[in-house]
Structures are given as structure tokens and as C-alpha cells.
Simulated assay, not measured.
Amino acid sequence: MQNNISSDNLKYYQEQDKENILKLRAVIDTLPKFCREYFLSIANSKAARTRLGYAYDIRTFFEFLHEQNPTLNKLNIRDFTLNVLDQVTREDIDEYLDYISLYDHEGRELSNELVGKKRKAAAVRSMFNYFFKMDKISHNAPSKIEMPKLKEKPIIRLEPNEIVEMLDVVEEGDKLTDKQKIYHNKTRIRDVAIITLLLGTGIRVSECVGIDLNDLDFENCGISIHRKGGKDSVIYFGDEVRDALMAYLAERNLIVPITGHEKALFLSLQNRRISVRAVENLVKKYAKNVTSLKKITPHKLRSTYGTNLYRETGDIYLVADVLGHSDINTTRKHYADQSDENRRRAARIVRLRENN
């Protein structure tokens, strides 16, 4: 059954899905024709954004083969056949991973560290696995290599005193440059609401920018959001978040948004729905006045909330539920590890001399 939904009635995440699907179709049209079958096979199990990422990464792989192989170099990538996958060796995959460390794409120099290599290798492996399981190829070279191993990085978050300092900077703007203060006078109330919301609920930046006016429920102090993975959920907020949102709404109700952005809660200075990039930039702007040693992003504010919630409750399942994690191991990995705090406590416990 078809759903006839006009663009005016689409939610933010639906608009993003629509854009990603159109981009995905455009990228698939540049890939070997057999790739369409693979992408159809994952259409119901992977989000549009994930499939688009796979398409970009798989395209990079075929561009590598086209560039490095003298026989394939004579063909258009669209004309590659499945036989090409059967001819790929383990050495080819190793060379590909080395290639993407630093390569040229349409005149731009691009590079990948371990995280990027692992993502690109996973996309290629997924495609090979599909055709191997369908008995359409007899060799599966990517399955023979070890995925790049990532080093565990310490969780970066704001300490309680840094949270207070950051909120002060957002509210007062004292540490901003003269140019930044000009914009701050126009966006202060909005920015306070955004930063307070991120710190007070732990929602993702995409969830934040996707909030519509009718998603707010002040009677129950809740916000309806669309979670990563496609689940709709209600998250609840405390008094500090409520006060910041209500102060912003008083200002927001006086703004006339441009056509198509009337439903959006948070607006840019151009009176359109604020973008993920804009929120990332404003977080960076305020955070660098608080700490120069930590690279604070909206996701780090999410980590800050998760850590504080775990410290207060000790309930890892509650933290997972509130943050919208589908796998409890993800939560445990990030928030149950209090090794740094334990090491600090150990330093205070041991006494070399008794106090007189």
C-alpha cells in the first residue's frame, strides 16, 4: 500500500531519509550493475543513511580496482561483472587498505585512519559476503583478512565544574570575541536552550535538530523524538531544561520561519531549521572557552550526561534505555568503565606517612 505524503507533512527524519535515498540511487548508478541486487538485499535491514555510506565506500573500492588494475582500467566501472569479485585476492584487499590511507579523489587528497579503514573494509566485506552466500562468487577475499583493530580511547566528557562554566559562557558570552558577541546577542536564548537540552537529556544532535514544536509536552515534561534505528520514543527533562525551553519558546513564537520550516523548534538566523553542522559549531565555539585540552562535540555532551546519570544511579540498564542504546554492551563499554576515577581514588587512599 502506497503512502501519499506531501513534503509539508514529512518529519525531519523522513526528509533526511528521502534525501539519502535519492543520493543512494545516484551513487548506485555509478557502480557495477550487479551492485543493485546487493543494495536491494539490505534495504529492509539498514537505514538509508547507512546504505548511502556503504555505497560511497564500495564506490571507493571499485575506483581503486579501476585505477590499479591495467585490465579493469580499460573498462567503465558500470561494466564490471561479478567475475571481478572472484578475481580479487587477499593481497588486493591489503593493498586497498593501504591505498585508502592516502588517495586522490576528484582532485582532492583524502585520508583514512583506523576508524575510516574499518568502516570501508566492513562495507566491502558485507557486499562480498552477500554474493558468496548466494553462491554467485566462489572466492571471498575480504573474509580472509583481519579487520583493522581500533585502540580503546578514553571517554571525553565535561567535569561538573566545566559544565557550570560552559553554561555560564553560553548565558553571559563574556569570553567570546567581539565578533562572536554580535551573533551571541541574537542567539543567546536559543543557544542556552540547545546546550541545556543536550546536557540535560543526552539526546543525539540529529534528534535535537529534528524536534518539532508539537513534539514538546510541558505538562509531562517530555519530548517525542525519532531514535537512531527508527524507533520513536519520549524522553523526559527536568526543571532546568524546561525553563530554558520555555524562555526560548517565548522568543521562537515571535519568529516567522521561511516556508517549509514552520514546524521546526530550533531555527537558524536565516529562520530555517537549524542544521546538525550549526549545532556542532556552536558547541565547539562555547566549549573552547571552557577547555582547550578536550575536543568537545555534541556527542561529548551526550557522554557527559550518560556518565553523570550512571554515577548518580549506578543503573547501566537505565542509562541504556534513556540514551536509546539497542545493545547494553555499548552502554557498559562507555559508561560502566570508571577506571580513571578509580585510579584517582587509589591515589588518595594510599598514605606514605601518617598525618601528625
Results as ranks from 00 to 15, higher is better:
3 N>M: 03
4 N>P: 07
5 I>Q: 03
5 I>D: 03
7 S>T: 06
8 D>A: 08
9 N>D: 12
9 N>L: 09
12 Y>K: 04
15 E>P: 00
15 E>F: 08
16 Q>C: 10
16 Q>D: 10
18 K>Y: 02
20 N>Q: 14
21 I>K: 12
21 I>R: 11
21 I>W: 04
23 K>R: 07
24 L>V: 06
26 A>R: 13
26 A>L: 07
26 A>M: 10
27 V>K: 06
27 V>C: 07
28 I>P: 06
28 I>E: 14
30 T>F: 10
30 T>V: 11
32 P>Y: 14
34 F>M: 09
34 F>T: 04
35 C>S: 15
35 C>G: 10
36 R>W: 09
37 E>V: 13
38 Y>K: 08
38 Y>S: 06
38 Y>V: 05
39 F>E: 07
40 L>Q: 11
40 L>P: 00
41 S>I: 12
43 A>C: 13
43 A>Y: 15
45 S>T: 15
45 S>E: 15
46 K>F: 13
46 K>S: 14
47 A>R: 08
48 A>C: 09
49 R>F: 08
51 R>L: 05
51 R>C: 03
51 R>K: 03
52 L>E: 12
52 L>K: 09
52 L>M: 08
59 R>C: 08
59 R>D: 07
61 F>V: 08
61 F>D: 12
62 F>Q: 07
66 H>D: 12
66 H>E: 12
67 E>S: 04
67 E>V: 02
68 Q>A: 14
68 Q>G: 06
68 Q>F: 11
69 N>D: 15
71 T>E: 12
72 L>C: 03
73 N>R: 10
73 N>D: 06
75 L>P: 02
76 N>S: 14
76 N>G: 09
77 I>Q: 05
77 I>F: 06
77 I>A: 05
78 R>K: 13
79 D>T: 00
79 D>K: 00
81 T>W: 06
81 T>M: 07
87 Q>D: 15
89 T>Q: 04
89 T>E: 11
89 T>R: 03
94 D>P: 00
94 D>Q: 04
94 D>F: 08
95 E>M: 06
95 E>W: 07
95 E>F: 08
96 Y>T: 04
96 Y>H: 02
97 L>C: 02
97 L>S: 01
98 D>G: 01
98 D>I: 03
98 D>K: 09
99 Y>L: 03
102 L>S: 13
102 L>F: 12
104 D>M: 07
104 D>K: 05
104 D>P: 00
104 D>A: 01
105 H>V: 12
105 H>A: 13
105 H>I: 13
106 E>G: 00
107 G>R: 02
108 R>C: 11
109 E>S: 01
109 E>I: 05
109 E>Y: 01
109 E>N: 00
